[in-house]
Amino acid sequence: MVKCLTKAHQKMNASRDQFDKAMGQHAEVLAQLEELETLRSREKEAAEAQREALEAQMLVAKEAHEAEKAAREILEAELEEVKSRVARDAERLRLEGKEEFLKSREFDTLLGKKAGGFFKNGFFGCVAQWRANGYPEEEHPATFLNVQQAIAEMPDEEEIPEEEEDEDEEEGGVGSEATPPSSPLS
């Protein structure tokens, strides 16, 4: 029996040693588990803080984008307004320039040259038609067929009496849309 008790006692001591060893391991595992849970909670808090920071950045970026979009729309509206104002001003200046040109001496000179050219070509055309149709110049000399003489006999604008100018202005003036008198040859 002593042997049995000794064996039982040794077995119990071995079991106690194993139990103590297991309890030590259990305590180590619990400590590691607590450490892991602490790390996990810290990582979770860090991830939550990072997520909140990213959401805040996204909100700021979204607000900045909206502000830029609104500013762009305002600038585009201002640009369109400036373009339309420039177009109106350009048209007004073009019309003013046109009116000034029509009143200028240069326009009168150009118009005189063109009118002289049309008169000369028309005059020579009429003379050619009369000659082609057998107008007898020898029997009926026509002094008006001389271009230089006809131009010399034309009254200057300055020589037109004021009464005739007033009548021209009442009838629409020079350059009006009134129809010219019809030619006796037509």
Rank of each mutant, 00 (worst) to 15 (best):
F19L: 14
L145D: 02
A27Q: 07
E81Q: 07
A128M: 12
Q50M: 14
T109K: 08
S183N: 11
K120W: 06
P141M: 08
K103I: 04
E34T: 11
L39G: 09
A132T: 02
A150I: 01
S84K: 05
A67Q: 11
S183G: 03
A14I: 15
Q149E: 14
Q57T: 06
V127H: 01
T143F: 10
A64T: 08
E158V: 00
L54R: 10
E81D: 06
V127M: 07
K7H: 05
E35A: 05
G173C: 00
L30W: 07
A90K: 10
K98C: 07
L145F: 13
P180G: 00
K69F: 09
D166M: 12
E55P: 00
G125L: 01
V82M: 06
A64C: 11
D89R: 03
P184I: 01
A61V: 14
S15F: 15
E170D: 07
E45W: 05
E55M: 08
A71H: 10
G122T: 00
R72P: 01
M1P: 14
M23V: 15
V82Y: 04
E106Q: 11
E100P: 00
Y135D: 11
E91T: 03
E37D: 13
Y135F: 15
S176D: 01
E177A: 03
E106G: 02
K44P: 07
R88P: 00
Q25M: 13
A87L: 12
V82R: 10
D20G: 06
L36V: 15
A56W: 13
E100T: 05
R131L: 15
A67H: 07
A27P: 05
E45Y: 05
A71M: 10
L39Q: 14
